[in-house]
């Protein structure tokens, strides 16, 4: 399935990239999305990104909720006029027949307070299940996207469930020799759910959060915005873990999110600042 998508998007001009090697909540955090959505240069890329959402853990007992799963992400900047059709064509190559399944574009505006980003778009439904998030980025890191990028985020497990016709994610066949998704990940889900919700040492997490914040600032002071952005990713994930452990009160929540947003914004701002002279030179009249 991944190979089919790689082939498809590669044929449509996308770079095929590898996952970012950090824990993150969504493919959108990948620098190939966040940072590349900034600035005037065209950028077309596709990649798989493992995602971790600690609060979505269900100890392996929910048929389609996981605290660790895979997204397939495509970013097309500027968004091409036939982007919806391209997307539907890509569903066909992985075996989803739109005359048999009910494909729908249902309003879902996207906002990431921690990235200072928002966009308009849809969640794409396949027979009532959200299988893709489809977004036209309008702002990233607090900056207007000029031009606007189209982002497609496929939920690989969910699509696979449709294609294979199984009710439970753990029943997905991983190969043709009887190995299932459950064989690979079920125990992982159980243990990680337990760790996320019950075991993780919260003091250490708070400490990690503080260290990431400090390091991000250090990076910004030393003019390395990509390194700073990595620390923002780190802080964001630690914050999610603290949420799962239930140790962040409602009052504190806004303040933590504000801190992460400031890191992400600061990184984007510095990244823009560094690139701006080149962009302004190549794209006459372009400003942030």
């Amino acid at each position: 399935m991944i190979l089919a998508l790689h082939d498809f998007w590669s044929a449509h001009g996308c770079l095929i990239l590898q996952p970012y090697d950090m824990r993150m909540g969504a493919g959108t955090f990948h620098t190939a999305t966040t940072l590349r959505a900034l600035g005037p240069e065209p950028w077309n890329a596709a990649f798989v990104q493992p995602c971790r959402r600690p609060t979505d853990g269900r100890y392996g007992e929910n048929p389609n909720r996981l605290q660790h799963y895979y997204q397939y992400q495509v970013i097309l900047k500027p968004s091409p006029p036939d982007i919806q059709q391209l997307y539907l064509d890509s569903l066909k190559v992985i075996g989803i027949d739109p005359m048999k399944h009910d494909i729908r574009f249902v309003e879902d505006d996207w906002e990431s307070p921690t990235l200072g980003a928002w966009g308009l778009g849809w969640e794409v439904w396949c027979d009532g299940m959200e299988v893709t998030q489809f977004t036209y980025f309008q702002q990233m890191g607090g900056f207007d996207c000029k031009p606007v990028a189209g982002e497609l985020t496929y939920g690989l497990e969910r699509l696979a469930m449709y294609i294979q016709g199984v009710d439970n994610v753990y029943d997905l066949a991983f190969n043709q020799h009887g190995v299932t998704y459950g064989d690979v990940f079920l125990e992982n889900e159980r243990q990680m759910s337990k760790w996320n919700f019950e075991v993780a040492e919260t003091e250490a997490l708070f400490d990690l959060f503080r260290k990431a914040v400090a390091e991000c600032k250090n990076c910004l002071a030393n003019d390395v915005p990509i390194a700073a952005y990595e620390q923002a990713i780190e802080a964001s994930h630690i914050f999610n873990l603290l949420q799962a452990r239930g140790v962040i009160s409602v009052q504190e929540r806004a303040s933590y999110m504000g801190q992460v947003r400031d890191l992400a914004r600061g990184s984007c701002e510095k990244y823009m600042e560094k690139e701006l002279p080149r962009w302004s030179a190549e794209y006459e009249g372009w400003t942030a």
Binding site: P78, S79, P81, G119, Y136, K146, P147, V148, W286
Partner: peptide
């Protein structure tokens, strides 16, 4: 109530806005 920019023209923030891309 909410509108967006899209496509190559959105290199400028002055480009046409519609609820989703106008086709």
């Amino acid at each position: 109530p909410k509108s967006q920019r899209w496509g190559a023209a959105s290199l400028s923030t002055e480009s046409l806005r519609w609820v989703r891309p106008l086709s």
